[in-house]
Design a protein around this nucleic acid. Structure first.
Lengths: 303, 303
DNA sequence: ATTTATCGGTAGTATTACTACACAAGTGAT
DNA sequence: ATCACTTGTGTAGTAATACTACCGATAAAT
């Protein structure tokens, strides 16, 4: 007769998530795993969600009292989420709180005061940048840098907010060390892509990665033998047309009030690329950059 | 005979800094107050500076052992810096570490690997944005918003990186609800400032606040009765020529490797301004913005 | 309705942070 | 140079806190 597999299989591992923070923000996880919590543990969960600051500075006894449960329940709550204990949880909570209350917990309302709005937007920005950092694949960056240091010229293209980012990138041409172009209108962009050569690197910036004209330009550049780097917010049609893909994950701008934070994250990525390329080009190149910066200061002040 | 003043005067208040984080980053303070620490406490200080992660996850006994001092010394170290105790210090340390190791502790070297460089730049960016947030005066924002909601048209100007920021700001004109201009070259900028009217609001973006042509443009706009808002990195000549000054403090880009993070902070401030103005204009305006966003998505995908 | 498994609290224990005290080292004055 | 005195550091003890083992209650399943 058939024997069912041993019951121990029912408890493989409580949580694959490591104890310290490389995963999703804590309060996010709290919401998603709320269903798998016990009734009394949920009381603790809502307490920490409503008043994380208090939790952070309190002892177990105080938390237990405030949530209306016993101390071991608080303890179980912490271990249920995969932490070593109360202290470990508190430390982790402090970490996420440093970036501000995550966006999902603080949507922007019409009647928010300016100070409220200020903190909310900063919180959202910092949390999103943190997310981008955690999800960034440095190998992609490495490939991109390798491509850029051997480039004879670089073209940055993008529409809307990404177009501004492209402008910013092109302005860093002293760091890249080769001529940089960032045409603004669609026709000029296509012309640039179309007249690219095998030495050209085309950097396509698109948050959605679905903008059709950009995909077309990427194809055109590749036909000319150019290398194409895509910087996008996630999996998208564009990424299958390119040589290197840098995925910059932020929090989706579901609420239309919340400003597009993705462009900030992309700007940071550009910073990383530019700096990496500059250091990769050796000391004499850096000397030229330094001299340029110095001269610019004089020019700016009108000396 | 002369009696010296009572000795109690020698200990007025240990530290004016509040226990929780509104001041400078912790590791920064550690460096600046290192001199006023006792010999054994300094051992603890260097330990936490070298290996903050370890400190964060350890007990007092472990830290004492690692630093080669006794537990009370660790305790005194915490209180000397103005914290309630060991726990309080640990929580605060975790907070600062969440943003990454601050810039001053991790200057960029020529031989840094790409992953190293990535974390360093992200850390620097996040820390700087956090600093900008803490030092931002919301009353200045409020004044600026009050000015912008009554504007009939808005002009954004800036040079270099700030010029890009101006472009980005102008692109948010749907949120501002009035025509926005962001001329690129100096002559066009001056012409725009010169042809401004009392309904015009001129937003001058300059990190240094010393760029002479910009100051001249601000003067010109004021002569025409326009209102002028300055967004700058600190006290500077420009600020005495304007109606409202928004100071965005980041970390000075002393090292020329470190990319200019100030522009990112200013972008966030622009986000705040745009969102505030949009909500301030009432629901029917927001409805139009929402419709516009929806239509843009269709256009983008070429449907 | 009874058994069984899951859940929550009470009581106890081992750590851990914190404090009071005493010794040592450095400093200034007689 | 020696002595009083301040300052700094460690030892020993205490109160608290986090964590654990156990048992009663409650809900679920048969």
């Amino acid at each position: 007769m058939y024997e069912p597999p041993p019951a121990t299989l029912a408890a493989p591992e409580s949580l694959p998530v490591p104890t310290m923070g490389s995963g999703e923000p804590l309060l996010q996880r709290l919401a998603s795993e709320f269903g798998s919590l016990r009734k009394s543990e949920r009381k603790v969960a809502v307490m920490v969600a409503e008043n994380p600051e208090f939790f952070m500075h309190s002892t177990m006894a105080a938390v237990a009292e405030a949530a209306g449960v016993s101390e071991p329940t608080v303890m179980r709550f912490c271990t249920s989420l995969g932490f070593d204990g109360f202290q470990s949880f508190k430390i982790n909570l402090a970490q996420t709180l440093a970036l501000g209350i995550p966006a999902t917990h603080s949507a922007i309302n019409d009647d928010d005061s300016i100070p409220e709005l200020t903190t909310k937007i900063f919180d959202h920005t910092l949390t999103s940048l943190d997310r981008a950092r955690r999800n960034l694949d440095t190998r992609q960056i490495e490939s991109a840098v390798a491509m850029l240091v051997t480039a004879s010229n670089i073209i940055f293209i993008g529409f809307g907010a990404s177009g501004i980012v492209a402008q910013d990138a092109a302005q860093k041409f002293p760091l890249f060390g080769v001529p940089c172009l960032a045409p603004i209108d669609a026709h000029q962009q296509f012309m640039a892509a179309s007249s690219s050569t095998p030495g050209t690197v085309l950097v396509v910036i698109s948050n959605t990665g679905r903008t059709k004209p950009l995909i077309e330009m990427a194809r055109q550049a590749k036909r000319n033998g150019a290398s194409v780097i895509a910087i996008a917010g996630g999996d998208a049609p564009l990424l299958s047309e390119t040589d290197v893909n840098i995925v910059v994950k932020t929090f989706d701008d579901t609420d239309f009030y919340t400003p597009t934070v993705s462009r900030l994250a992309v700007l940071v990525v550009i910073d990383i690329l530019a700096t990496s390329v500059a250091t990769g080009r050796g000391p004499e190149h850096l000397g030229r950059v330094r001299a340029m910066k110095h001269d610019l200061t004089s020019f700016r002040n009108g000396d």
